[in-house]
């Protein structure tokens, strides 16, 4: 197996898009799924998904992933991020349509690489909504100086995911 090429060079970008804040997030954080060049959904931090019943979605998570600070990525990270997101009435700038109903929607760690979401009913858009479900390290959330999504700067996560 050939080693991937070493990164080389610098590019300077000017991005007037009003979505620049989101592009910075997507280039540095990841989600259970991502959107490929053609706009198609592909797995990212998840490797597969399965609806166990109309309200239960199980994700098999990728192994061997580390956060940029060295922390191992596990299902506990996904649950922590889900629980943080669910604290807010309207966490996503695009609006409440991206919400998972609270408090009925919950995340259950099955094992280090298996996570089960329980929703109050079938949600055919759930996988797509995961594109806005950024997974941050424990250090992003824990401790007095942890930034959270808006916590440190605004004292709230509303509209800041």
């Amino acid at each position: 197996m050939t080693a991937p090429p070493e990164p080389v060079g610098t590019v300077h970008v000017v991005d007037p898009s009003p979505l620049n804040w989101l592009f910075i997030t997507w280039n540095t954080m990841e989600e259970p799924i991502r959107i490929d060049q053609d706009g198609r959904t592909v797995y990212s931090l998840a490797e597969s998904s399965e609806w166990l019943d109309d309200g239960t979605l199980e994700l098999e998570l990728r192994r061997g992933v580390r956060f940029q600070d060295g922390e191992h990525f596990t299902a506990h990270n996904v649950k922590q991020n889900f629980d943080e997101m669910q604290r807010w009435a309207a966490p996503h700038p695009p609006g409440t349509w991206l919400n998972f109903p609270a408090p009925e929607s919950t995340a259950e760690v099955v094992d280090d690489h298996t996570l089960r979401f329980h929703f109050p009913g079938p949600d055919g858009l759930a996988i797509g909504k995961f594109r806005g479900f950024h997974i941050a390290s424990s250090a992003f959330w824990d401790g007095p100086d942890a930034p959270g999504f808006g916590y440190k700067k605004h004292g709230s996560g509303e509209g800041h995911w």
């Binding site: 997974i135 390290s137 930034p147």
Partner: peptide, 12 residues
């Protein structure tokens, strides 16, 4: 969105 720099994610 991310308010300050740091090794917060798993991204590229």
């Amino acid at each position: 969105m991310i308010d300050e720099p740091g090794p917060w994610g798993t991204g590229p």
